[in-house]
């Protein structure tokens, strides 16, 4: 059995989990074994409802009223218990902050190795041959993962999620975890709502991002205007954050936010790998740059060569006209 951790936040599925499930299903087929999922929470059933078409034979519902809030130690403890009971060949999660964290805790508890952010997984004898992302995607590592079960996370934005052919509704098996207080000492005790209005950067359908070429904090005004018109969010490169023009929460990149909009509008961004690591999940990339040779053009779909301070307001104008 391959066991996939179905990641959710208070009952809301993290859709990137489906990327992991897609890869896990391939692995299970490869190994001739079954695919199962596990949802951990106070009412895990609601998450499982969304998983009908994804080829999971079983979904384990680890249910406990104390799991109404995220408690990573408890999640890891529950996973270890399930591992002991069901003896899966591998346990997988999406390589999100939460997925990586829970599997790291699981690995630490069970004293097992863990390979995070894998892009490829091939069984190879007792071991798995994996390819995983390092340096924010600038470098890949080929490695051999040992241990039983194998613990892995899947690099986000690499696998195209695909529903299973002829999938049937998974059978749901409720499991009661054995949790003690120590498992609950790290848990979300409060939440602070985002201060930003509108859509979050990570989920925005349109991201208008600025780099060194924007030249000042004030220079971002026209980007804010365009993003607001399109219901999107503004992002920036690391240089911008370091210069104090935008807060770090706007930073897209290896050490910032990973975004996956329909269109990423990169204004005055040269395309350092640190930055590109955060926006390669974009469906389309439009570049506005006065240097036709900027490296980012080699990763873009569209480009306008020109001064972003003229081009961006003109786009806003054109958008207003279309929107009436």
């Amino acid at each position: 059995m391959i066991l996939g951790l179905i990641e959710h936040d208070r009952g809301e599925l993290n859709a990137q989990t489906l990327e992991m499930i897609t890869l896990a299903r391939e692995l299970a087929a490869n190994l001739g074994t079954s695919l199962a999922g596990v949802v951990i929470g106070d009412r895990p059933g609601q998450v499982a409802d969304a998983l009908g078409d994804w080829g999971l034979e079983t979904v384990y519902l680890v249910e406990d009223p104390r799991l109404d809030e995220y408690a990573p130690d408890a999640w890891a403890g529950a996973l270890v218990q399930l591992m002991e009971q069901k003896q899966p060949q591998a346990v997988m999660a999406i390589g999100s902050d939460r997925g990586n964290e829970v599997l790291a805790r699981t690995a630490a508890r069970a004293n097992l190795p863990l390979a995070v952010n894998c892009t490829e997984i091939q069984p190879e004898g007792d071991a798995y041959f994996v390819t995983r992302v390092r340096w924010g995607g600038t470098v890949l590592e080929e490695a051999r993962l040992h241990g039983a079960p194998k613990l892995l996370t899947v690099a986000p934005f690499v696998v195209e999620p695909q529903e299973a052919e002829g999938a049937s509704t998974p059978s749901l098996v409720t499991v009661a975890p054995v949790l003690d207080e120590a498992d609950l000492r790290v848990r979300v005790t409060a939440r602070i709502a985002p201060q930003r209005e509108g859509v979050s950067l990570a989920e925005a359908p349109v991201v208008v991002a600025g780099g060194r070429g924007v030249d000042s904090a004030e220079g971002f005004e026209s980007l804010d205007v365009l993003a607001a018109l399109l219901g999107g969010a503004v992002g920036c490169s690391r240089v911008v954050t370091n210069n104090g023009w935008r807060p770090h929460s706007d930073q897209v990149g290896q050490t910032g936010v990973r975004v996956a909009p329909e269109i990423y509008i990169a204004c005055g961004i040269s395309g350092a790998s640190q930055h590109m690591a955060g926006c390669t999940g974009s469906k389309h990339i439009l570049v506005i740059n006065n240097d036709p040779e900027a490296p980012i053009l080699a990763q873009a779909d569209y480009a306008i060569i020109g001064d972003l301070h003229e081009v961006v307001p003109a786009i806003s104008e054109a958008v207003r006209e279309r929107q009436g």
């Binding site: 390092r134 990763q299 569209y302 306008i304």
Partner: peptide
Amino acid sequence: GLEKIRLKVPETEKKQAQILGHGP
């Protein structure tokens, strides 16, 4: 339990961006 075999630099897909034009 994670044994590095080798590193490799990924082939980045070199796109030829479609130039929409110059300036506003």
